[in-house]
Simulated assay, not measured.
Amino acid sequence: MYLTHPRCLAALDNWLAVRHQRGWGLSGVDEYRGFRPGSKLVTTFKGEAYELAFKHRMLDSGPEVYRCCDTLQQTFSRLYRQAGIKGGSSHSGRRSLAAKVLAATGDVEVVQTLLGHASLDDSKQYLTVDQASVKRAFEDAL
């Protein structure tokens, strides 16, 4: 995930300050801003890691079960809202990265590899093509 918006970075800095105050995940070493490298960025209100729940999705290729955390996604969505970023989610950075790589390379397999997906079907949700690119490709093909 790439978080580059200044307000989002400020919100993350504020959150890390709260974690420091509460002593959650501290290592006592200056590296990693004083946090343990393995500690979770987003935690429950008690400073513990979220439990992962199974998600069931029906894809074009058939049913798929995977693990994720709804609460974690909600936390990132709230973080984006607090930073004043509309439409942000836990996958916004992945979508932006996928779109930029696709626009730069035109190669969906590069996007698939970059996102770490075993199947191209898994990458489809991250791929959007703007109308200008479609028009350019059509004109180039003629």
Rank of each mutant, 00 (worst) to 15 (best):
C68S: 12
K135Q: 14
L127Q: 01
R94G: 08
L52P: 00
G23S: 02
R94T: 11
V129K: 07
L9M: 12
Q131Y: 02
T44G: 03
L9N: 14
G34S: 12
Q125C: 09
E48G: 06
G84C: 13
H56T: 13
D140N: 12
D60H: 09
Q112L: 08
V134I: 15
T43C: 03
L115W: 14
V29K: 14
A98M: 13
L3P: 03
R95N: 09
K100F: 07
G38Q: 06
L41P: 11
R22G: 00
Q73W: 00
G25D: 13
L26C: 06
I85H: 10
A99S: 07
S119A: 15
G34I: 07
V129C: 04
K55R: 06
F54W: 11
H20N: 02
S27Q: 09
L52W: 03
L102T: 02
D30K: 10
E31M: 08
R78F: 04
R81N: 12
Y32N: 10
D122C: 09
R57M: 11
A53V: 11
C8M: 15
A132G: 02
V129M: 03
A103M: 04
V110E: 08
A53Y: 12
V101K: 04
R22Y: 00
C68V: 01
R33A: 13
V65T: 11
H20Y: 00
A98C: 08
T71R: 08
L9K: 13
R57P: 07
F76C: 06
L97C: 14
F138Y: 10
G106M: 08
A98G: 05
A137T: 12
P37W: 12
D70I: 01
G28L: 11
A118H: 14
A141E: 03
D140K: 10
L79S: 03
R7P: 04
G84Q: 09
G34V: 04
H117C: 10
S77C: 04
E139G: 02
R19Q: 07
C69M: 04
R81W: 03
V29A: 15
K46E: 14
Q21L: 01
A141H: 13
L12V: 15
N14W: 13
E48D: 14
H20P: 00
D130I: 02
L59M: 09
V129R: 05
Q125Y: 04
W15F: 10
G93R: 15
L59W: 13
S77L: 12
F76E: 02
Q73Y: 03
L41K: 05
H56P: 03
L114G: 01
N14P: 01
K55C: 08
R22T: 00
R7V: 05
L102A: 05
S89M: 09
Y66H: 05
V110L: 06
L41A: 07
M1P: 06
R22V: 01
A118I: 05
T44H: 04
K46T: 13
G87W: 11
D13N: 14
S39K: 06
T4A: 13
T105F: 02
T128D: 07
G87T: 09
Q21D: 05
L52F: 07
L114I: 15
L142P: 00
